[in-house]
Design a protein around this nucleic acid. Structure first.
Lengths: 342, 342
DNA sequence: TTGTATGCGTTATCAA
DNA sequence: TTGATAACGCATACAA
């Protein structure tokens, strides 16, 4: 193998093979009209020189980068990690690379990251925004001329985007009714910020369950604020200190559960005996807790894969209408929920 | 604001401002030699046209992409998610984007992904390979002409790379000695594949502890194979079925713990009473388990940040020698470890 | 089927 | 301080 120049270009391949630059390009892009002899000469030269394509140049010329921007608010959250993994694998198998950016729950970074991804000329954007309603963020999204897929997020006035989300309302409704069935009435709901749709949908499902049971909706026990463990802990502390404390707590977010459990433990409040607990997303923590914790489960890796799927679909046929898909949730009943004796 | 052509280029900015293309470039790159008047004219035109830079073209011309490849084996593993988050944030703040690729514990994909990242002309590579020893992978790495930082991985014959890793041997030594102190002797060690260094280092620390205690090293209780929960579960099943089963199990990997606990639960073997358990990495599962589980902790987010730091360092001064850094571990003693009464 | 020539949008060199 | 112009490496329209 020849080893003079590192990083040879197509030009050098062409001259070594004694053919035109364009012929090299045709061979490498498996253009139909190339003779076998030409193909061989070129491939030999490629081999000899150790030629490697420059995808940056190729991107500039073609006008597409084969790159998808992925914007999440916190990759350390297992749910987002699953989204990322599921989507990344699917995209990779379709020949796309993923540019990952982390907004860190900071709505202003959403905006900056979208702009950066646009400047990088990504072919598409998959995102779980930190804030669905921020006008500046939405303006940035609108400037994007490539397909957008929202992952568990909804932005009005962006009808061109596809959406993949879990059926949070239905999941929360069934979880709440499970507790109501068990005679619980003082049920608390802790969930994330109202800036994004999932907590709002969870609240809607929560309310719906009370309506269906014709039971009074415990407005004083609903706390929407943040998905962080700290918020879960602080809020649970507060709830336990109430004159008429809850007999059940629903943690509307997987990280929240950590905080809820910390608080309950500190208060020596026994899960499944003194208080019922339900959480969202089936983590090892829920399964292996003593007692095991009832959860509203969903297939997060599959959601990531589907997001990629919707993206590939739009990339393949830009004129087809965007799709809005729901992934089901299912209630996994465990020992943390128990009948309240009247 | 003018709104004819979308995606105007510098050329159009130049003609609207009535200046040369090169002047536009100088203004946008804040070259020192530009008059205020020129700057204003150009910036006005930029504003009017809604000009946005094309980072692909810029990359081609400059010969650098301001992009770092990040290759991990499983983003769904919280440890890798933390690495990714820590590194991503630091890189972002330095103006670099991250191209994330997932090898999915498949050594052959390591190779393909490295090649792809090279073709994409990343300015550097941070990686936790699935297999440190695979010759084809190492060959691909050697073709890389940009800085490499290994995250908890070691590849011999690649002296140009920086390394950031946790002190697994020391962590495991202290964990093992903790158990030996408590009179345990039949201590099992379950950890990942020998294809990567951490399990090997953990084993070394494990052995060292026995040597220091002049206690017989229980070779039959050591099982290195994979980091998956399944492996943890299967292996624990086997260990419990032994004629002379372990009185303590060390799970050398955070995902393994899930499997270990599943097995113990199925066998009705009580953690902290019938068997002592130690795990690696301080997850919510360990903290909130009943009883809470003793762990070998390390700051994984910080490791990611440091990896980015070492990368930026090499990018800034390519001729400086690579750095090899260790992050300490510390043993967090909880109720899952107890004295064995003789 | 192959070759020639042009341009993708920048940055950098050189003169002016 | 500014302008003209030549690359960067590739893909493609067009001619042969």
């Amino acid at each position: 193998m020849y080893s003079g120049d590192l990083n040879p270009t197509m030009k050098e391949v062409a001259s070594r093979a004694g053919v035109a630059l364009s012929s090299v390009s045709r061979v490498l892009n498996s253009h139909p009209d190339v003779s076998d002899r030409m193909r061989q000469r070129v491939l030999n030269a490629v081999e000899d020189l150790g030629y490697e394509p420059n995808l940056v140049a190729s991107s500039l010329r073609r006008g597409s980068t084969n790159t998808i921007g992925f914007l999440v608010s916190d990759i350390s959250n297992p749910v987002f990690a699953d989204f990322t993994g599921g989507a990344g694998d699917r995209l990779q198998s379709a020949g796309y690379s993923m540019v990952l950016t982390n907004a860190g729950s900071n709505p202003e970074r959403d905006e900056a990251m979208i702009r950066l991804l646009r400047w990088r000329r990504v072919d598409g954007l998959i995102t779980s925004l930190a804030d669905e309603h921020r006008p500046d963020t939405i303006a940035e999204l609108k400037r994007l001329e490539v397909p957008i897929v929202f992952l568990d997020r909804f932005v009005d006035n962006l009808p061109a985007a596809s959406v993949i989300s879990a059926d949070h309302a239905e999941g929360m409704r069934s979880a709440t009714e499970h507790l109501l069935d068990l005679s619980h009435r003082r049920i608390a709901l802790i969930s994330g910020s109202r800036k994004i749709r999932p907590p709002n949908e969870r609240l809607a499902g929560f309310k719906k369950a009370f309506r269906r049971f014709k039971a009074p909706y415990p407005r004083d026990l609903v706390r929407l604020g943040s998905f962080s463990p700290d918020f879960g802990e602080r809020t649970t502390d507060e709830l336990l200190a109430l004159d008429d404390p809850p007999t059940a707590i629903i943690s509307g977010g997987n990280l929240l559960l950590t905080g809820v459990l910390r608080s309950l433990r500190a208060a020596r409040c026994r899960v499944g005996r003194d208080i019922a607990v339900i959480s969202c997303d089936d983590m090892a923590l829920a399964e292996l807790h003593t007692p095991p914790i009832t959860v509203i489960a969903r297939d997060t890796v599959r959601m990531g894969k589907l997001a990629a799927e919707l993206m590939l679909e739009r990339l393949a046929s830009p004129d087809a209408p965007p799709r809005v898909e729901r992934v089901p949730t299912n209630l996994v009943v465990r020992k943390s929920t128990f009948p309240l004796d009247a």
